[in-house]
Amino acid sequence: MPNSQTRITLLDEFARDHVPYDVDLWPEIAATLSTRRRPPYTRLDRGQLWRIAVVATALLLSIIVLPPTRQTIADTIQHFGIVETNSTTVRIGPPAPGATAVSVPVPMYSLEEAQKRVPYPIPQPSWIPAGFRLRGVFVGHDDVVTVSYVSDDWQVKVNSGAFGFSVHPGTEPSLGGTAIPSTAIRHVTVNGAPAIYAQGAWEHQPDGITWHGDADAVRVAWAADGFTYDLSGSKTDLGRDGLIRIAESIHP
C-alpha cells in the first residue's frame, strides 16, 4: 500500500503532468472582471434591497402560480440530461494546454453482478425487439447503471445494431448533459410522463462535429419511479414507436 509520502508524490506528479507550471489564468480573469468589475465594498442601500426583494417575490409567485411560466422554465432546464443547442455544427478548438485524452476502462458485469453493486433494483425492460439480447451492465459513479443490448449477430457483423439505457436514482435536473439541436428534439410521453425524443447523431469532421438528423440513431429520455432514464439505440430500425415501446416497458 502506498504510504503517505508516496501518495503525495504520486498525486503531485500526476497533477504536474496535466497542469503545467506556466499556465496563466490572469488574462481570462482580468477580462471577466473588466465586464463586471465593481468595488469590493459596494453595498446595497435599504431601498435597493426592497426593490430586489419585491421583484424576486413577484418572479417566484409567477413561477408558483402560473402553470405556463412554470412549464416554460421546467422545459428549459429539465431535459433529463439532454441539453438543447441552437447549432447543428460545433467547431472544436485545440485542446487546453496540458490536457490529454485518456480513456478510463469501465468493467462490464452480468446483471446479477451489477445488481450487487448498486443499492436499488436495476430496472429492466419487459419487452425488447426480437433479435436482440442483453450484452452486459456497466456500473459508473453515483450508482449510474448502463444496460447494454446488442443484436444476435453482434459477434460476427460489425455493422450490427445495439441499444441500451442509462439509469440513475433521482430526477432532479443536473448541469450539463448531452447536446442535441433543438430542431431535432420532440416532446413525447413515456407512460404518460413527459419525455424528450430525438433522432439523429453527431458525426465527427476534421474541424468539429455536425448533426445528421437522418442517421439511424434514436434516443428518448424521461423520469419515472424516482429514476432518470436515457434510452438510445443505433442501427436498430426501432424508430420512435419501437424505442418508446421499450421505454414504456422499463420498470424497477
Partner: peptide, 16 residues
C-alpha cells in the same frame, strides 16, 4: 452523473 454517463455511453452515436 453526467460525466459518468458520457464515459459509459459515449456521444449520441456512441453505441457504435
Amino acid at each position: 452523473r453526467l460525466f459518468s454517463l458520457d464515459r459509459l455511453a459515449g456521444t449520441f452515436d456512441g453505441w457504435r
